[in-house]
């Protein structure tokens, strides 16, 4: 398999993630879509790293996984706290702040 296969797959996954963030209204689904974007990037990095015989990309993937884990911890905590307060995870319900 050539790197193109992996890169195109990663591109498709990234696009699905972006689309999900833009059209879905549930905070959890939006968050899942963001995770999909990050994992698409990880796939891209690993592909480049493998085909260029350079370890840098794989090192960055480790950092990216750690960051994603930290983001999950913070993000889910925020969603839970807001759900307790307002009883909703729908982003359209969060409209206290606007001009």
């Amino acid at each position: 398999m050539s790197p193109q296969h992996y890169l195109v797959l990663a591109g498709i996954l990234f696009t699905i993630g972006v689309t999900g963030v833009l059209i879905r209204k549930n905070a959890l689904i939006v968050f899942m879509s963001i995770e999909l974007m990050l994992n698409a990037v990880n796939l891209t990095l690993v592909t480049f790293s493998h085909f260029m015989r350079s370890p840098d990309g794989q090192v960055l993937v480790f950092f990216s996984i750690v960051v994603a884990a930290a983001e999950v911890a913070v993000g889910l905590a925020l969603i839970v706290a807001l759900f307790r307060l307002s009883g909703s995870t729908n982003l359209d319900d969060f409209n206290l702040l606007k001009w």
């Binding site: 990050l38 480049f48 990216s64 960051v67 983001e71 993000g75």
Partner: peptide
């Protein structure tokens, strides 16, 4: 802030990956 920030992180990281490639 979190959702948009994480969204932006996705773009940033994809940019890094492509530059690396």
């Amino acid at each position: 802030y979190f959702l948009l920030g994480a969204f932006a992180t996705g773009f940033f990281l994809y940019g890094v990956a492509l530059i690396y490639g």
